[in-house]
Simulated assay, not measured.
Amino acid sequence: MKAPSAAPAIRRRMLVICPFPIGVAAGQRLKYEQYFDRWRANGYDIDVSSFMDEAMWAVVYEKGRYAQKVAGTLRGHMRRLRDILRIARYDVVYVFMWVTPFGTSLFERLTRRLAKRLVLDVEDNVLLGQSLPKEHNPNPIVRWLKGPGKIRHLIAKADHVITSSPFLNDFCLGINENRAATYISSSIDTDRFAPSGPKPADRPITIGWTGTFSSMPFLALLDDVFLKLAARRTFRLRVIGNFDYALPGVDLEIVRWTKEKEVEDLQELDIGVYPLPINDWVLGKSGLKAIQYMAFGLPCVATEVGTTPLLITHDQNGLLVRTDEEWLAALERLIDDAALRARLGGAARAAAVAHYSLQAVGDDYDRVLSSVFKDKR
């Protein structure tokens, strides 16, 4: 990773305000978190304040456990009260998504007022209060409590906004008072996220998907496709996540995601799938799953919507589809043709290293951080 030859003479203090503990959520781990060492080398002393602590993270996606979840939410708000009292000591505050998950925009307004400089990092149109599919949050009271005005206020008032897609970037440019928004792609440590060696010839072709409980409805979009495919081809479906999933009639393997085995579990795949609904909401998606598959040298089949056509060139480094029939045909092609898997996977790996590695994307973050000190409010 590129870094200065000597530590800068002037050290700056940065407070990172984020939803999840360090090292557990893909949206944080494979975004800004992996640049902390780079930023420290560039002269920043970094403190991280996550709303959710490890105890709450351990239960947040489990059914029930309401007492622990309420207690965790209260602890999170206490941390935010502490943050409000110390924000003025920092040279820059870096907010990922929101300051608090529920309620009015009070904490966001206080953070903006007290921060000398504020960088906001946003992803997905849900954070803008746009139309969120109900399956992500079926409780209307909870949807209301999430306060869509929170994120919009920060977008308008931030010194600079970092976005997860060009479509989201255009939206933020339209309401940011400084006209300062930059699309920065999700990125991957391509030295760590790398292809494995040859796989045993007698194992079934493994199609894989990785994600969390919140993205499980996207996986379910392919239930019918997998059932039809199972009647026509032999394959194994590997689902790597933090939830239970069943699909009778399909050779299914459920793998609980862990940070320690993440690379090993993904290296077992032969094909990666990235299904998405075709609607305006997904225009804010960064395409992180596709980039992960590409880094491992896997041919990725993805829904042709939003950011995916920017990442994948059809039949060159992956396959783009829109209908169930196209999904079925694409997966059959890849199962039947080892040479096609190798060609697409090799091109995908090359694209990931060239465009989505830490080395390729790190300079974009450096430019944003430099800009907020040059263009002081």
Rank of each mutant, 00 (worst) to 15 (best):
M1C: 11
R13E: 12
L15P: 04
V16I: 13
I17N: 07
G27C: 08
L30E: 13
R40E: 07
D45M: 13
I46P: 15
V48K: 07
S49P: 00
D53F: 13
E54F: 01
M56Q: 15
W57V: 05
V60P: 11
G64Y: 15
A67V: 15
V70A: 14
A71I: 11
M78I: 11
R79A: 05
R80F: 02
L85M: 01
I87S: 09
V93H: 01
M97C: 14
F102A: 15
F107V: 13
F107L: 10
L110H: 06
A115T: 02
R117E: 06
L118T: 11
L118K: 12
S131A: 10
S131Q: 11
K134F: 01
E135D: 03
E135P: 00
N137Y: 03
I151G: 15
R152E: 13
R152S: 11
H153S: 15
D159V: 10
N169L: 06
F171A: 13
L173M: 13
A180R: 14
Y183G: 09
S187A: 13
A194T: 11
A194E: 09
P195F: 02
P200F: 02
T212G: 10
F213V: 04
S214H: 12
M216K: 10
F218M: 04
L219V: 00
A220K: 10
A220N: 14
L222M: 05
G241T: 00
K259A: 14
K259Y: 14
K261A: 13
V263W: 08
L269H: 02
L269T: 00
D270H: 05
I271K: 08
G272E: 02
V273C: 10
P275Y: 07
K285R: 08
A290E: 06
C300N: 05
T303A: 14
V305A: 11
L310R: 00
H314A: 06
Q316F: 06
G318E: 04
G318M: 06
V321C: 00
W327K: 10
L331F: 08
L331C: 14
I335S: 04
D337G: 04
G346C: 07
A347T: 11
A350R: 06
A351N: 09
S357D: 12
Q359W: 14
S371Q: 03
S371G: 02
R377Q: 08
